[in-house]
Design a protein around this nucleic acid. Structure first.
Lengths: 226, 226
DNA sequence: CGATGAATTGACCGATGTCAAGTGGCGTGG
DNA sequence: CCACGCCACTTGACATCGGTCAATTCATCG
């Protein structure tokens, strides 16, 4: 478990003794596919590091509109705001397959941070990167069209959850048209139309909730199109 | 200067000796209206706390498209990523009026953080709040129309930079139609049309780069409209 | 008083969201 | 094992929001 922790961004660069302490303080939590680790709006009491499976980070509006912010995989953390007082979880975390995570109570993690400033800097780095990522996508949303954003999205997913096959890169996630629509910020019809067109042109191949990326170069140029 | 620092989010809650140390390490930097403190993409070497004036935080795309993320005023900080190695500024900071700021070199601030974990937690809190704010606006962008977003924007600006007058809340910033367009993510024509309509209905009153908010309730209900 | 930049307004059109109808595949239960 | 129903997906027709272009007015400042 310690080597596992050493590979995470939040515990990166810690000396073995500190890692051991962190490991001792952790609990383990498993959830079934489609179930939630945490719900948006709840008081943020604990921070998590995913160790098995993939999960969605998503938000819902009062009117039921859902937005899928991103997917996370093993080694990635969520709920870091738990180290701060008075924060609620800003989003919900839903397992897309059976998942397991390590859990730290917020106060415990805060203590670890006080004694090992490295963890604090790591947390800052993580939040700063999330910020940059969000800013980039915010920008995309303001300035780019649905086709470009969908192309970007598929490239990003292939990068972070893709496995190489003989034909191309297969995205290892159950990915419905609705999921894609919630990421890109459109509806399933527009996604469907674009995917059909790309499939005809041989850029991608889709098969029941799975996407196989054949021509990343083609999508890259679509994404860049002015 | 110490009481000034004590009121900032980043140095909030520090004991006087630590405040004194922080104050000793700071430099002061002034810039004229329309000039920049930092430019997007430059290596982030220093962190700033604005002490006079207002500034814009903005991003540009290679194609010249500009996005105005938010305004900041006295006591607010920017460029905190400078405490981390290898980060570039994610946005540019432009003074909208003559401004002054306190400046810390990234490494100096990092040292302060190591010795006063409180600063680190403050920084985490700031980034977490920025994240939440961005997520909320990301969500708005995905799900809401231009009219709702413009209403939201004006309400937000009135809240953070408004002064109460006999007639209503005056937004104390030079605010062109283009500025609004860059915040909302639209063009000056759409902004102009909406503002005209609202002015006819008596919701707002505009006068050469200034906006006077007369009926916040009306804008609130517009912003909430489904 | 002319020049420059901000703002307005109308006409147009395209991207994209909405609605409707239909296909296909998979799992469940009879 | 079959049939039914559900769910994901597709496709077409249509409506509309809002972005683009063009022309004009207005205000400010040198």
């Amino acid at each position: 478990m310690m080597s596992l922790l050493a590979a995470t961004r939040i515990f990166n660069g810690l000396d073995p003794r500190a890692l051991q302490r962190a490991a001792n303080e952790a609990h383990r939590k498993a959830v079934d596919a489609d179930h939630f680790f945490v719900h948006q709006g709840e008081p943020a009491l604990a921070a998590y590091v995913l160790v098995e499976g993939h999960a969605k980070i998503l938000q819902v509006t009062p009117d039921g509109h859902q937005v899928l912010l991103r997917y996370i995989g093993a080694g990635q953390e969520f709920g870091l705001v738990a180290v701060l007082d008075g924060f609620d979880y800003p989003a919900s975390i839903q397992a897309v397959e059976p998942c397991a995570a390590l859990v730290w109570h917020g106060e415990v993690l805060a203590q670890l941070m006080e004694q090992h400033t490295r963890i604090g800097f790591n947390a800052l780095r993580i939040l700063a990167q999330q910020n940059q990522d969000l800013q980039r996508r915010y920008h995309e949303l303001l300035t780019e069209h649905v086709e470009q954003r969908l192309a970007q999205t598929i490239l990003r997913l292939a990068e972070q959850a893709g496995s190489n096959t003989a034909d191309g890169t297969l995205i290892d996630l159950p990915l419905t048209r609705e999921d894609l629509a919630e990421i890109v910020g459109t509806d399933i019809y527009s996604v469907s139309r674009l995917m059909s067109r790309w499939e005809q042109r041989g850029f991608v191949q889709t098969d029941h909730q799975h996407v196989l990326l054949l021509r990343p170069d083609a999508l890259t140029s679509l994404a860049a199109a002015d």
